[in-house]
């Protein structure tokens, strides 16, 4: 039985002065231990969802329940202890003058004892493999390293959920892989439930579940395999499909009898090898 961690029930949100709802009657849930990818074109409402989930904005209608608590102006501080967030720009979220100060910042705000604080800072930095950089200043770090420090800052507060709001979109390929690998490991160790808001369809293909947002509503909710069956439909929504699916399609058009939709290069290579040995 999957344990429900977050519930959105008919959530509506509109920015002041805008004609349309940014989020329009959205309902879905998030289960403990899963990696949920939320995709959609720029302006589809996915970043607004992130802001609603940790109480930077509040719904005009409907409700959000996190760990059994309804999110409201009264409960927001308790909810934020459960949900940590990593934003897009590595340079906008580094508040400390050194790596360890930065991770300690959230703990200080939460009034944690210095002894416990030191322990947690060290542990969190170890988890993201940045414990060699305790006294480094932020400008000596790469974008990927800064984002890993931001993740450590979230981890130190021991939340249940981490939201990545396009957290890898400003990084180079190596930085992106570093960050995703870090989050993947944390998820494997059952430390965190991950909600990743992303444009990176290859990353989304590796999620447990995907939600496709379009014009403020949930367009589709399903496994990557189900979602990427939509193929052309996704492209018409301004999205893309993983490379292996495009290649498999082209192979089929050229008469090579590929069976299913292959979500990763590995799966497609395997099927081609099997076909090759059968011929």
């Amino acid at each position: 039985m999957r344990e429900q961690l977050v519930l959105l029930d008919n959530v509506v949100f509109k920015y002041d002065g805008q004609e349309h709802n940014a989020v329009d009657h959205v309902s879905f849930d998030v289960f403990k231990g899963e990696w949920l990818a939320i995709v959609g074109h720029n302006g589809s409402g996915k970043s607004t969802l992130a802001k609603l989930l940790n109480g930077l904005q509040f719904p005009l209608e409907g409700k959000i329940i996190v760990n059994g608590m309804e999110l409201s102006e009264e409960s927001v501080w308790d909810v934020r202890k459960r949900i940590g967030m990593v934003f897009q720009n590595p340079d906008n979220q580094f508040v400390g003058t050194t790596v360890q100060d930065d991770v300690a910042f959230g703990l200080e705000n939460a009034g944690i004892e210095p002894e416990i604080m030191r322990e947690r800072v060290k542990n969190a930095l170890k988890r993201v493999k940045m414990d060699q950089f305790l006294n480094q200043e932020p400008h000596h770090l790469s974008g990927g390293q800064k984002q890993r420090v931001a993740i450590a800052g979230v981890l130190a507060l021991q939340p249940d959920i981490i939201i990545l709001d396009e957290a890898t979109s400003m990084l180079d390929p190596r930085g992106r892989e570093e960050v995703l690998e870090t989050v993947r490991e944390l998820k494997e160790e059952n430390v965190l439930t991950v909600i990743s808001i992303t444009h990176d369809l290859e990353e989304a293909a590796k999620a447990d579940r995907m939600i496709v947002m379009n014009q403020g509503t949930v367009y589709r909710n399903g496994t990557p395999r189900e979602i990427f069956q939509l193929e052309e439909e996704l492209i018409s929504l301004g999205l893309d499909i993983p490379f292996s699916i495009k290649l498999a399609k082209s192979l089929r058009e050229n008469g090579v009898e590929i069976e299913d939709r292959q979500l990763t290069d590995g799966e497609l290579v395997k099927e081609l090898c099997e076909l090759n040995s059968r011929m």
Partner: peptide, 19 residues
């Protein structure tokens, strides 16, 4: 590009030439 790759894969696998 993908089309070129698909045709190359077909060629190296000798798809359609063997039975």
């Amino acid at each position: 590009n993908i089309e070129e790759l698909a045709m190359e894969i077909k060629r190296v696998m000798k798809w359609g030439e063997r039975s």
